Simulated scan of single mutants.
Amino acid sequence: MNDQYYVSWGTLALINAGIAQGKNRGGLNWFLLSLLLGPIATLILVVYDKK
């Protein structure tokens, strides 16, 4: 795997943290979760409503 893959995955995790904070959820928790789940975490954030 090349470095661009890791940069893209990290960028997605940062975007997910921003989405989570916008929905009144813990940004750090979602950032860490996104590092593990990636696009699946994005789907979860988009589908579920705000707190």
Rank of each mutant, 00 (worst) to 15 (best):
G27L: 02
I44K: 12
L43E: 11
L43P: 04
K51C: 04
M1R: 04
G10V: 10
Y6Q: 10
N29F: 14
K23A: 07
G27K: 01
Q4S: 10
Q4E: 07
V7D: 01
L43M: 13
W30N: 01
G18P: 00
L28Q: 11
V46E: 12
I44R: 12
D49C: 02
L28W: 14
A41G: 09
V46P: 02
P39V: 13
G27H: 01
A13K: 02
K51F: 06
V46H: 09
L37G: 15
G18C: 06
Y48N: 12
P39N: 05
W9Y: 09
L33K: 12
N29K: 11
I15M: 06
P39H: 06
W30D: 00
A20E: 01
N16L: 08
N24R: 13
G10W: 08
L14R: 07
G26H: 09
V46I: 15
I15G: 03
S8I: 10
A13L: 01
Y5G: 01
Y5A: 03
L37Q: 10
Y6P: 00
K23W: 07
G10D: 06
K23N: 08
V47I: 15
N24M: 11
K23P: 05
L35Y: 03
V46Q: 13
L14A: 14
Y6T: 10
T42F: 13
I15Q: 01
A13E: 02
G38F: 00
Y5H: 04
T11C: 09
Y5Q: 04
G18T: 04
I40H: 10
A13N: 02
N16V: 08
Q21E: 10
N29H: 09
Y48H: 12
N2Q: 08
G10E: 07
S34G: 14
A20C: 06
N29P: 00
K50N: 15
L37N: 14
N2K: 07
N24H: 14
N16C: 13
I40W: 14
K23E: 05
V47E: 09
N24Q: 11
L14T: 12
S34A: 14
G18N: 08
G18S: 07
F31K: 01
S8C: 03
